[in-house]
Computed example of a mutant assay.
Amino acid sequence: MVNIPLNLFNVFLASAEQQSFKAAGEKLCLTTSAVSQSIKKLEDLLGVLLFHRKTNAVELTPSGVELLEYVKAGINEIEKGIQHITKQNDTISIFCPPGIASELLSPFMFKIIAEGFQNIRIESNEQFSYNTYSQYDLAIILDETEKQAKNTLYLGPDYYFPFCHKTIYDQINSIDDLYKMFLFHHDFSRISWKEWFAYNDITYTPQKTLTFTRAAQLLSSVDNGLGVGLESSRLLAKKLVSGDYRLCNLPNLKPVKKDITWLYINSNKKENKQILFLRDLVLEYCSTDIEGRLKCLG
């Protein structure tokens, strides 16, 4: 294989595009003579004529035309590679569902700031397309099928049970009491009230429901004591511990368990120290034990 300096291909590309050694020199900040000598050296190394020289211009030979396509493609790939690695070095990208972002990541944020991270992008979106998460360095994914995927770590089970604010807890002691309340739901929940009632062998006949477009809206309404929500104990953990939220007092009824929460790690970043640090933070602050309780809360 001929060892050819890459700068000769840059000179070749500029000369082909400008159709002039002089114009190529001006573009590359080289003299016309330097461009001419570089092209001559490239032709000698390849053993083919690349340009027909004219008085005030140059013209590609058939061999030059053929080489030009390969050089363009090669330089384009090099530029894409440079953009990719510089983007990776500049910014670490993380995807996280909005509920987890708002309820669990506060200590996570303090830790990454204290660690000296400078460029972190956290994208939070309910309508996440699971076939595109490979564009992120890390992604917290809510999807039962991800247990089959590579490069994912299980973050523990989610348990779904009706919950309310402490101010209305004493008013809910039976299913009939539950039906008297507004039952809150949001469009992107991984469980419906109908599913929870069916799991507990109860006919689904609620009289009052209110559906939100975001989990944050549901939680805000529960905070104000306006009704009862159905959400994962993972997201409710801190307010359950503080006593602001209570799991409704419904004897002999069971929570629905789902294995849906996974951490994806980009395979190209598995040895990156910063990514490994962030991975460990997610495992520390977002993982649940076998009963669905956040491990970091003991």
Rank of each mutant, 00 (worst) to 15 (best):
residue 55 T to L: 13
residue 252 N to P: 00
residue 136 Y to I: 06
residue 129 S to V: 01
residue 39 I to H: 10
residue 298 G to P: 01
residue 30 L to N: 00
residue 32 T to P: 05
residue 198 A to C: 04
residue 146 E to S: 15
residue 229 G to W: 06
residue 37 Q to W: 04
residue 116 G to T: 01
residue 169 Y to E: 13
residue 179 Y to N: 15
residue 85 I to W: 09
residue 88 Q to A: 08
residue 19 Q to Y: 01
residue 197 F to D: 12
residue 167 T to K: 15
residue 52 H to R: 12
residue 191 I to P: 05
residue 59 E to K: 11
residue 178 L to Y: 02
residue 287 S to A: 12
residue 41 K to M: 04
residue 204 Y to P: 13
residue 178 L to V: 08
residue 210 L to I: 08
residue 192 S to D: 02
residue 87 K to H: 10
residue 101 A to K: 10
residue 60 L to E: 06
residue 25 G to L: 07
residue 251 P to S: 03
residue 74 G to V: 05
residue 191 I to M: 10
residue 180 K to I: 00
residue 124 S to R: 07
residue 294 L to Q: 03
residue 36 S to V: 12
residue 54 K to E: 12
residue 167 T to A: 13
residue 75 I to W: 02
residue 3 N to Y: 11
residue 237 A to P: 08
residue 224 N to R: 14
residue 215 A to H: 13
residue 86 T to R: 15
residue 189 S to E: 00
residue 57 A to L: 03
residue 28 L to C: 08
residue 132 T to I: 09
residue 106 S to V: 10
residue 182 F to A: 09
residue 237 A to H: 07
residue 9 F to H: 09
residue 133 Y to C: 03
residue 93 S to K: 14
residue 267 S to T: 04
residue 246 R to G: 07
residue 282 V to G: 00
residue 154 Y to W: 12
residue 262 W to A: 15
residue 226 L to Y: 06
residue 55 T to K: 15
residue 189 S to L: 01
residue 136 Y to H: 04
residue 110 F to P: 00
residue 66 E to K: 11
residue 195 E to N: 03
residue 131 N to I: 03
residue 15 S to I: 11
residue 6 L to P: 01
residue 280 D to G: 07
residue 102 S to N: 12
residue 282 V to C: 04
residue 192 S to Q: 06
residue 196 W to E: 06
residue 20 S to E: 12
residue 24 A to P: 03
residue 73 A to G: 09
residue 30 L to P: 02
residue 167 T to D: 15
residue 114 A to E: 11
residue 239 K to I: 04
residue 191 I to G: 08
residue 268 N to F: 00
residue 135 Q to W: 02
residue 294 L to D: 02
residue 284 E to A: 03
residue 55 T to Q: 12
residue 43 E to M: 05
residue 117 F to H: 08
residue 276 L to P: 02
residue 166 K to E: 11
residue 23 A to N: 11
residue 196 W to I: 02
residue 223 D to R: 04
residue 148 Q to L: 14
residue 131 N to S: 13
residue 232 S to V: 05
residue 257 K to E: 15
residue 268 N to H: 08
residue 235 L to A: 03
residue 45 L to S: 11
residue 298 G to L: 12
residue 54 K to G: 04
residue 167 T to R: 13
residue 67 L to A: 10
residue 102 S to G: 05
residue 135 Q to G: 06
residue 255 P to D: 05
residue 285 Y to P: 00
residue 231 E to G: 04
